[in-house]
Write a protein that binds this DNA or RNA. Structure first.
Lengths: 202, 202, 202, 202
DNA sequence: GATGAATGAGTCTTCATTCAT
DNA sequence: CATGAATGAAGACTCATTCAT
């Protein structure tokens, strides 16, 4: 097997195990047993267990950043309505997260209990979402689409928390993959809940 | 020192360490060093490390349940307005969580990565909040205060996520304790955000 | 067993094994088997294998330094003849080294092949001997007892090499402990060999 | 590349690494990285790591034996003075050792810490020098050039130790290669130191 | 009850060696 | 012959738990 495939394979098994059992309860032995490879093979591709975990998270993060850029090209910021924009953003996030329940589990639930770099590699996600929402809200405010008296920081926190929990609850824990229609309706509900409080009356 | 005090002391130090470093990165050695007691003493009061952790969480959970009962006695469900009731509930939750940043950290962030009973001991919290909100919403619906077309399950998830994240963000991570006025205004903001989407128009 | 005794015990067994098999061929398992203690016990007293080794060497070095000071108090530098002084120094060194064949083996033979701190902890010995001889020779030169044309650096190297090899050959490798008379005659031979070339003719 | 050249290449890199880092701290990985060859290639030419090391030492040993024979043909044992003969021998040894600082390092410093055959492959050198000196001294004794009361075994040990240490000190550790004049003067000093004690007065 | 020395099962990690391509 | 991915035995180290004092 080529080096690249083997590395991907290991990441795949590691992801599943980390997601189900957590970082500290997943042993290298578990991973190599599941993947049916030798113990040492893991260390040919990853410096150590930490490195394996962080690689996993970083790849997911990069995928996500790329996904955001791609999606943003699909809309015209000049003409889209605030409501549609909000919906679009929420839907994209849910779409992306719904694709990988294991990583969802890892990223959304493993907070404390990881030391040092491990923890911070995970926190980037939440910060990213939070910051995106903050900047979106500030942009909307400048254009008078978002209410001027909104506490941006807090609203963003609330939306982040709501979004992540929904994602975890609906994508991470459960097995069955949601279809487009379901995600669509989820996004609609979320917009329906936060919209009235955020947007200026037309 | 009396047995009871000593047990409390151990829990105190354990809580702080678990909160800052997580379950797996906190060693019994750390706890006894900080508490300046002997290694074996911990095992006089707790069956094992798991027991110590679970005791911690259970105490917090019981405190919380008790707190809810107490608070519920302070209001008259017959006369209170839906809006005030929502505010009251949100405020109580924030009040309670703000009192113990360490436990906030533990309960709100340690998700995956704990095995078996440890994990479920923590998940009770989230379920509890979620269920409270669900029952509140359903109650409001029966009384026509809450919009009939609301997706209760999802709304509850959103509110739970928003609430927990705000609590973690404002109580868990930061050092300075919030005062009543601050918590009050937080509760108001939350109600302000979720209210418009939840309640029927008067 | 008291902590101090246990630590000493471990050092004792480690010394014997390091001496016979070398650093890399001595496993912690060997040490604990010989000492009939548990694997973890070693780590209660020493940070790691390196630490165990370095502690061993440092103790030996300190013993030696102390021994030198003590011995130097026994003679009167003002009245002793150069020849007797040389003999005295050589004899002291041999005396000291002959007391601990295992450490002799370790210190005199393990040169390269140890990394970093391990290696330098050993090299201190040779440097110490070399420097002592250099300063002795320079002292003798100032008093016209040592020939003015002597290449001090080189002579010191030769004497160091000769001394260490003899010590290793006679103390390190063989089992039977030398008695005082034997060491005495060794010292006399060494002085007899180097004396004629070093001292000024009387 | 021809098989022979490749084998030489591997030995070359191995020598440098063994010399600088020792046997146990030199990995096959280091060697193949430096030599820019594949991991498996080493095993095409050497049975295993031990074999690689021992081959290295044996080659050096054979070179040395050959060198001794060659040099011995250059003098006339019948006419040469004892003093000149001693000088000649010392100089040859220093000459030879000064040519390969890496092997000097390996042979002169790696004593203990190598197991079994590795260690004995190295010890042959010291024994060889020691035996040469012993037989030279005995030869001189028979011819009344060497003092009859000399302790041959001990004198030989002293000279061996002195010689090897000087070689290590001057050739092994330092970078700059000594020129002939320097080695010449070293040899003269050594003879000057040991000569007076060894030879009979003329 | 309190102590802290001792235990040893459990893990990660290394690295010489093999072997299919 | 050369390659380098794969192997797995071996070894260092951790840490919750026990128990004699």
């Amino acid at each position: 097997m080529k080096a690249d495939e083997r590395k991907k394979l290991i990441l795949e098994y590691a992801k599943r195990l980390f997601s189900r059992k957590g970082y500290y309860n997943t042993q290298i032995a578990d991973i190599v047993n599941e993947a049916k490879i030798a113990r040492g093979t893991v260390y040919q591709y990853f410096k150590n267990k930490d490195d394996l975990f962080i690689t996993l998270i970083k790849e997911f993060y990069n995928d996500w950043e790329q996904n955001i850029s791609l999606e943003m090209n699909k809309i015209d910021l000049k003409t889209i309505s605030p409501h549609d924009y909000f919906y679009f953003r929420v839907k994209n996030t849910l779409d992306f997260l719904s694709n990988d329940p294991d990583l969802c589990n890892i990223v959304l639930r493993m907070g404390i209990g990881l030391s040092g770099e491990l923890e911070s590699s995970i926190k980037r996600f939440e910060k990213k979402i939070h910051n995106l929402i903050v900047s979106d809200l500030e942009f909307g405010m400048r254009n008078k689409h978002v209410r001027a008296d909104l506490n941006v920081e807090m609203a963003s926190n609330l939306i982040t928390g709501a979004l992540l929990r929904t994602a975890l609850y609906d994508f991470g824990a459960k097995k069955k993959k949601k279809d487009q229609a379901e995600i669509d309706s989820m996004a609609r509900e979320i917009v329906g809940i936060f919209g009235p409080a955020i947007f200026t009356k037309k």
